[in-house]
Design a protein around this nucleic acid. Structure first.
Lengths: 201, 201
DNA sequence: GGAGCCATGTAAGTAGTTACATGATTGA
DNA sequence: TCAATCATGTAACTACTTACATGGCTCC
């Protein structure tokens, strides 16, 4: 990773949009759906971002309309330009910003962890739910049954790679939760023992 | 997790600030440092957020000044109030927002994955660097050598729990990268073989 | 009495979300 | 022909970051 030379200054979201257009000329809505299906878990794209960014990319000459939009609000297909492809290649070789995580459940665990094991247990249960939800999103990246062809084409790129990472990540987190849960159980058992000792004495 | 009953409407960052004050009465700067040391990896707190939020928490009656600030810009210590403690307890029992991840390197892998294995290899190398950097942040949560007592007290809560999670998380990610790297190597080997076949024929 | 860090604070900007408005298309 | 859904778009807001300003403290 080096030479951020002549990189246009775009947000990662804009680069992702350009990336989807590099796979196939498509409309904003199609991009939105493809992004939702294939990478929502690791980079969300909302429609409030999408349309302004499309216009911005067009202004920069990185994409262009493919055919005419029939009306003021009818479907407009976009295609990547040569300079768009070049820019995308450069972006792929440039330094990435560090992974950012915002994990409220974990923050709670931090503050609860010193206190009641009960609460920690409940928070770990919640965490399990959060991550099984997360796994559902991941599973949607590569559903067992076949997709309509259009959607398949739209989520080209390397869905299997993201899928493998997502699976690895969720499974590993689930394992950690199980470990912590048995730790909690043990600490409760110990407390019980101590209590019983006190009773006897 | 249930009853979000009478929860004041605060951002998770504000809750975290309140959480730190529940461990110990302290100044903004101390909170900033404790947050940086103990939970930066999973929830960053910046000073542009901190001071306005302190004032906001005070307006809500969840914290109060502990002693007087000597001057307009001198150290001010804050302490949590009873209603602050009650609110914090309620927050700990309330539903957490889902884990949010923004992972630019993974987005690049998605778009690179279908194309050149070389590029995928470089991106995996970058990922390794990103996560070994991440691990350094985690390691700072529980440094082998002892901390000044003040800092220890400030990062009470359950640093070991966050540490264990962070370690588990980074190790597991590193393992995945290794797997993917050998996958890349294999695909390069296959390509080579095919090439050799063509040469022979 | 000045260098450098400690500490508080703010202004400006960034990147994003949600909720809504509206037009176009489809199909019962 | 009406309802639902597809598709584009925007306004208002939210949470947050960076960079800077400034004052206070310490120690030589």
């Amino acid at each position: 990773m080096a030479h951020d030379d002549h990189l246009p200054d775009l947000t990662p979201t804009a680069w992702a949009i350009l990336g989807f257009l590099s796979l196939k000329a498509q409309s904003g809505y199609e991009i939105l759906r493809a992004a939702k299906r294939s990478m929502e878990a690791f980079w969300g794209v909302s429609n409030g971002q999408l349309y302004p960014q499309l216009r911005h990319l067009a202004e920069q000459g990185l994409i262009q309309p493919d055919g005419e939009a029939e009306g003021p609000r009818s479907r407009q297909r976009w295609e990547i330009t040569d300079s768009g492809r070049a820019a995308l290649r450069a972006w792929l070789e440039s330094l990435s910003s560090p992974v950012q995580i915002r994990d409220e459940n974990l923050v709670k665990l931090f503050f609860a962890g010193a206190g009641s094991p009960d609460l920690v247990g409940r928070l770990l249960e919640e965490r399990k739910k959060i991550f099984s939800q997360f796994e559902k999103v991941i599973d949607a990246v590569l559903p067992g049954d076949q997709l309509p062809e259009a959607e398949q084409a739209a989520s080209l790129g390397a869905p299997e790679l993201l899928f493998r990472y997502g699976k690895h990540f969720t499974k590993s987190t689930m394992r950690w939760i199980d470990q912590e849960e048995s730790r909690v159980l043990e600490s409760l058992r110990k407390k019980d023992d101590e209590h019983a000792d006190e009773e006897r004495s």
